[in-house]
Amino acid sequence: MATSAFTHRNDASTVVELQSKIFHQKVVLRNHLNLEDLTQADMAELAASLPHFENIKVLNIKRFKAGEVEAKAFFEALGSIPLQKLCMSSAVHAEAAGQAMVKALQELDVAAFAALTELDFSYCRMDHGLGEATRTTEG
């Protein structure tokens, strides 16, 4: 919103306040979230906003980019929500994102993900450590 142009600049604070209010009303109600084509900046913003998704159960992300910083922030944020199913897929050429995600996963405290019953990393290649597989765990 800081870079948005307003016809009347004095409307900016009201618009920002209303947008924040609507965002918080909507995210609390969501239990599924599907996202596509996320940049590294988008992944960082997602990590910052995930704790607001108090009732999210399923998160699907297709085609994304992430470095180690974004991957770590993403998984740390996931630990604060009751997620049951996480599906992430990306193009095979996105090796850096896959490596960053696997590294972040390896450093996790799995106790934070007690509600997670399904983990699908269909973007990972065998040389990343997880392989192309869907991991299902029973609580």
Rank of each mutant, 00 (worst) to 15 (best):
A5M: 04
T7W: 12
T7I: 06
H8D: 09
H8P: 07
N10F: 13
D11L: 03
D11H: 06
A12E: 13
A12L: 01
T14I: 08
V15F: 02
V16K: 00
V16D: 13
E17F: 04
S20T: 14
Q25Y: 04
K26T: 02
K26V: 07
V27D: 06
V28P: 01
L29N: 02
L29G: 11
L29H: 08
L29I: 08
L29D: 01
L29K: 15
R30F: 03
H32C: 05
D37Y: 14
D37E: 06
L38G: 03
L38W: 04
T39R: 07
Q40K: 14
A41Q: 10
A41K: 15
A41P: 03
D42Y: 02
M43P: 03
M43C: 01
A44T: 11
E45A: 13
E45L: 09
L46G: 02
L46A: 01
L46H: 05
A48G: 08
A48H: 09
A48R: 15
S49R: 02
S49P: 10
S49A: 04
L50M: 05
P51N: 01
P51R: 05
H52E: 02
F53E: 13
E54H: 13
E54V: 08
N55M: 04
N55A: 07
I56A: 04
I56S: 02
I56V: 05
I56E: 02
K57D: 05
V58A: 08
V58S: 10
L59H: 01
L59F: 00
L59W: 03
N60D: 07
I61Y: 00
K62P: 10
K62F: 01
K62W: 14
G67H: 11
V69F: 12
V69W: 09
E70V: 05
A71T: 15
K72H: 08
K72Y: 11
F75D: 03
E76D: 00
L78H: 01
L78V: 01
L78S: 00
G79V: 00
G79D: 00
I81G: 11
I81H: 07
P82E: 00
L83N: 03
L83T: 06
Q84R: 03
Q84F: 03
Q84H: 06
Q84D: 10
K85D: 07
C87M: 08
M88H: 09
A91L: 15
A91K: 01
V92Q: 13
V92T: 09
V92K: 14
H93Y: 13
A94R: 15
A94W: 10
A94H: 15
A96N: 08
A96T: 14
A96I: 12
A97L: 12
G98Q: 11
G98Y: 07
A100H: 09
M101I: 15
M101R: 11
V102N: 15
V102S: 04
A104G: 04
A104H: 05
L105V: 08
L105E: 00
L105S: 08
Q106K: 10
Q106C: 12
E107Y: 01
E107V: 08
E107C: 09
E107T: 13
D109Q: 13
A115S: 15
L116Q: 06
T117G: 14
L119E: 08
L119V: 02
D120C: 06
D120K: 07
Y123K: 11
Y123Q: 11
C124H: 09
C124A: 14
R125Y: 08
M126L: 12
H128I: 08
H128E: 15
G129P: 02
L130S: 11
L130Y: 14
G131W: 00
G131R: 05
T134F: 11
T134R: 13
R135G: 09
R135S: 11
